[in-house]
Design a protein around this nucleic acid. Structure first.
Length: 642
DNA sequence: GGGAGAGACGTTTTT
DNA sequence: CGTCTCTCCC
């Protein structure tokens, strides 16, 4: 197959794929086929004889990266297997791990796991105003980098911020680690200060999907990587939903403003949704005032008007029962469960839905985040494994030393770390000396005790034959809490073999933080609105459409401007949600969208979900329908009672 | 450095 | 309502 198969030369997708301009912006609404157009463009580049290794397709999420890779391979264009569609993050890790880059930056791109941040906080909290303050500082530190605040004229860092940053960086440098939020900024800084770096000219063609979801640092990296490359950015500021990650949707407007000769293309026909849904979506998003690149989303008449319902229930449990009944009935009358997508912005709603569907025997999968590393025992075993593979994994060692203590033994550890830094000795070596009595540091007895335990556990692993035995020992078959870890570790070992232990660990850590994405969809899927981005489904439910969830409860600390921006982002989130519906009329699938909400829910659920109820009586919270429901315009059906 | 009790606060999402 | 954090006291 060739890139232009089935493509009308007059179609916008053809233009995107064929444009010879070295700078292209594509603004494309939901369901308009932007990923499709981008894939065709990659296919065209390959057929033009561009070396696949010089083509960099960047996506924001792994799901999108894998999707892109799969589609390219499926297109059967020569060279497509060699294209590495990656997320910007994995690209940054790879580049920062190169020896010459490590030497230039002086920092290790060893990311801190969520649970490994605890000892970091414990070590910093006394000097910086407590746990909550330190968490705030860390957040602000990462935010400043994501927004490249340091480069903005007039940016002044307070003395406290500077002190904190110094302590934080000194901790991270000593522990040879990096905050996840530092990864992209470090690459940015490296590329910026090294204009002659080979990395700046590594690719000849860069394609970026979901550009509106990138933050300033990420957009900066793209720019630095593309000094000599042809660039095609694709995005839609109306679908920008990653404000918490400091996404910079205005960048999509600035991008074209700074490039006079660039091609500016857009895809506006919503090929996915039924016409009623497209019109509702248009109405909804029209309520947003701040739209850098406003453009219409036009309905596609062949799709038909669809099947849209808006239903209000008396209670949350009635809502759950109502949705589950509808789903069970659909499945009973022949709708494949995999055609059904249920979006709920809170676990408090998603979990009861999930459980009720399981009870009804409907095949269902929940996508709310759960980690194999949620339980402390699993964290401990994993840390031991890291240390077993590498005694110089200082973060794992630090974590193990403090584990179980409310203070993380931060006082002792401070003295100990001072010794290591003053004498330029590694923590493991210093602990060995302390343990052997060759070295004495006052007030570190407990530290040494714990170290002995860790040391003997590692020695025991060392005496075992091979990694398989180590895995079997650390994650035993009969230990329920580590069953998933065991399965993952064995799977990774099976793929890699016994030889390369470093690679084993990084692959395992990938497997843990990046769960497998199912290719075959056979279950009803329940997930948050964020996760649904990029998906489409013939039957889509959006549940819990109440004030406080959609839009979420405004934070007390927000200014009016921030509050307004937050509501607009929440509106975009709802916009993304309702445009997941896919009409396939010739397969008897009109495209079904069901929006549900309830009048009340238990107070505990409301508070636990961050809703401030309109009124409360006897443990029941009274709720208000989402204002977005009223913003859907004349194409929306009248809400009915369920 | 550890434990008990009082008080604050709460989500969601990515790498 | 349940969990985390802080304070006070040993």
């Amino acid at each position: 197959m060739t890139w232009s198969d089935g493509l009308d030369p007059a179609s916008p997708a053809y233009q995107v794929a064929s444009s010879q301009n070295s700078q292209i912006r594509v603004v494309a609404g939901p369901g308009t086929g932007k990923s499709f157009a981008m894939k065709r463009r990659v296919g065209r580049l390959l057929e033009d004889g561009i070396d696949p290794r010089l083509i960099l397709p960047v996506t924001f999420t792994r799901v999108a990266a894998e999707d892109l890779h799969r589609e390219l391979v499926g297109m059967g264009v020569i060279g497509c297997e060699e294209i590495e569609g990656t997320t910007l993050h994995s690209l940054a890790f790879r580049m920062l791990s190169r020896n010459h880059v490590l030497a230039a930056t002086g920092r290790n791109p060893r990311p801190l796991n969520d649970f490994e941040i605890k000892p970091l906080i414990a070590d910093l909290k006394d000097a910086h105003g407590g746990v909550i303050e330190v968490k705030k500082f860390i957040k602000a530190f990462e935010a400043a980098w994501a927004r490249l605040q340091h480069e903005q004229p007039g940016y002044v860092q307070s003395e406290q911020d500077r002190d904190f940053a110094n302590d934080l960086l000194s901790w991270l440098t000593f522990h040879r680690a990096m905050l996840i939020g530092e990864v992209i900024p470090h690459l940015y800084r490296y590329l910026r200060t090294n204009p002659a770096a080979q990395e700046r000219a590594e690719y000849s063609h860069i394609l970026v999907d979901e550009y509106q979801d990138l933050n300033k640092a990420e957009q900066g990296v793209i720019e630095l990587l593309s000094t000599d490359a042809e660039v095609c950015i694709v995005g839609d500021d109306d679908q920008s939903i990653y404000g918490f990650k400091h996404a910079h949707p205005d960048g999509i407007r600035d991008w074209i403003a700074n490039r006079e000769q660039a091609d500016d293309l857009s895809l506006t026909e919503c090929r996915r949704c039924p016409t009623d849904v497209t019109e509702m979506a248009t109405h909804l998003i029209g309520h947003n005032v701040n739209r850098p690149v406003p453009r219409p989303l036009t309905p596609r008449d062949e799709n038909g008007s669809g099947d849209v319902r808006i239903v209000q229930f008396a209670t949350l449990s009635a809502e759950v029962a109502g949705v589950v009944n509808t789903i069970a009935e659909m499945v009973g009358t022949g709708t494949p469960p995999g055609d059904i997508l249920v979006l709920a912005q809170r676990k408090a709603i998603g979990t009861p839905l999930y459980e009720a569907l399981v009870a009804r025997g409907v095949p269902v999968k929940s996508y709310y985040a759960e980690s194999e590393l949620d339980v402390e025992d699993a964290q401990r075993r994993y840390a031991i494994l890291k240390l077993f593979v590498d005694r110089e994994d200082r973060v794992a060692l630090r974590w193990l030393l403090g584990r179980g203590s409310a203070t993380w033994l931060s006082g002792s550890y401070r003295r100990f770390r001072d010794h290591c830094e003053e004498n330029d000795v590694t923590p493991w070596t210093a602990l060995e000396r302390l343990g052997a009595g060759v070295l004495v540091i006052p007030h570190t007895n407990r530290l040494v005790e714990v170290f002995h335990e860790v040391q003997s556990e590692i020695q025991m692993l060392e005496d075992l034959e091979g990694l398989a035995a180590v895995i079997d020992h650390l994650f035993p078959e009969d230990e329920g809490g580590v069953r998933d870890l065991r399965a993952l570790a064995l799977q990774v070992l099976d793929e890699l073999g016994e030889e390369n232990r470093d690679e084993f660990l990084s692959e395992l850590s990938d497997a843990i933080t990046k769960p497998e994405i199912p290719t075959e969809i056979e279950d009803v899927r329940i997930m948050s609105l964020h996760k649904s981005k990029g998906l489409s489904s013939p039957v889509t439910f959006v549940c819990g459409c109440v004030q406080g969830l959609l839009p979420r409860q405004a934070n007390q600390a927000m200014t009016d401007v921030e509050r307004q921006a937050d509501i607009e982002e929440q509106r975009r989130l709802f916009y993304v949600g309702i445009t997941r519906v896919k009409a396939v009329p010739d397969q008897g699938k009109p495209g079904t969208l069901v929006l549900t909400y309830s009048q009340t829910m238990p107070v505990a659920d409301a508070l636990g979900s961050g809703i401030q109820p309109a009124a409360v009586d006897y443990g029941t919270a009274h709720l208000i329908a989402s204002p977005f429901i009223a913003e859907l315009g004349p194409s929306a059906p009248l809400p009915v009672a369920g």
